[in-house]
Design a protein around this nucleic acid. Structure first.
Ligand SMILES: [Mn+2]
Ligand SMILES: [Mn+2]
Ligand SMILES: [Mn+2]
Ligand SMILES: [Mn+2]
Lengths: 152, 152
DNA sequence: ACTGATTGTTAGCAATGTCTAACTTTATGC
DNA sequence: GCATAAAGTTAGACATTGCTAACAATCAGT
């Protein structure tokens, strides 16, 4: 390859994880990143349906802090992906897949949130951090978070 | 607004955080999301310069698991944003801003990583989760993570 | 110093995710 | 039931992030 990789002396003791493993990690993160939006949507849609009986684009938009046309376009994609069903000018419904994903997301969200609060974080910040972190925790980490919450 | 929000009975005891606060949380997450890539790049560039004396697109690409033209285009953006300097066909350098961001990112990365490992996670998974989580932890959370690591 | 291998750039495609503006449909209030 | 308000859609713009293919520059071994 390059001269560097052939010379161990030029590699001064930083973790020196294999390049491929790092690439895999980054690929995993990119993968998770690409699912984040759909996860936030279905989680929110499930909540709206539960709390209000229906999920309307205008309510989704208000809670996500985006404009309605943005929601409309994203909902088209979710429908294409089989997570929701929708009819023109009507509110949105989850498919079985969508409901199942929503449930999984809500579970992750709750675990992360309770964990952060158990650690001593204020609920506001916990909510904000959880909203981002939830998409990037492995099942293993989730298990450790759960255990910590129980134990504390 | 809509009939729902006017009728408290239809709001069955889910956390019922104000809509605006949620929107702000999501906006914060989107903001963080938009910075993730730049953060991963400068952190990696700093590491390559430290470990190998220079940061070449081909090495960045190998470690991120993307193709070289993707890196080239992203580096143009980072240059435009003032995080790096580059000359055609040459390797990349960090500006003061870039170096400062890299340092901050590395610090976050290390804290999150050590925290996850302290919790009991295996180093492989810890590395993967940290790579995603690092972009979504507030300074407060970081402080709690640090404290936990010290105390354990 | 040539030449072939490696590295880097450019152009162009596609998907995503955001917006505004203009329009259509549905719901509300009298 | 009609007029107006609210909600939803569509079109079109723009930035980002990925890719491949084609080309250009640099490096390395002889
Ligand atoms: Mn989220
Ligand atoms: Mn969530
Ligand atoms: Mn990262
Ligand atoms: Mn990192």
């Amino acid at each position: 390859m390059t001269q560097h990789d052939l010379d161990p002396q030029t590699q001064p003791a930083t973790h020196d994880r294999p390049t491929d493993a790092r690439a895999e990690a980054f690929q995993g993160v990119r993968e998770a990143r690409s699912r984040e939006l759909a996860e936030d949507y279905v989680e929110l849609i499930a909540e709206l349906i539960h709390d209000h009986g229906e999920a309307r684009p205008v309510d989704i938009a208000a809670r996500l802090g985006v404009k309605v046309p943005t929601v409309s376009k994203t909902l088209d994609r979710l429908a294409r992906e089989g997570l929701i069903t929708r009819a023109k000018y009507r509110s949105v419904f989850l498919t079985d897949d969508g409901r199942s994903l929503a449930k999984e997301c809500r579970r992750r969200h709750e675990i992360v949130l309770r964990f952060l609060i158990s650690l001593g974080l204020d609920p506001e910040t916990a909510e904000r951090d959880a909203e981002g972190i939830e998409h990037h925790v492995s099942e293993r980490t989730l298990a450790l978070f759960s255990a910590f919450v129980s134990r504390s």
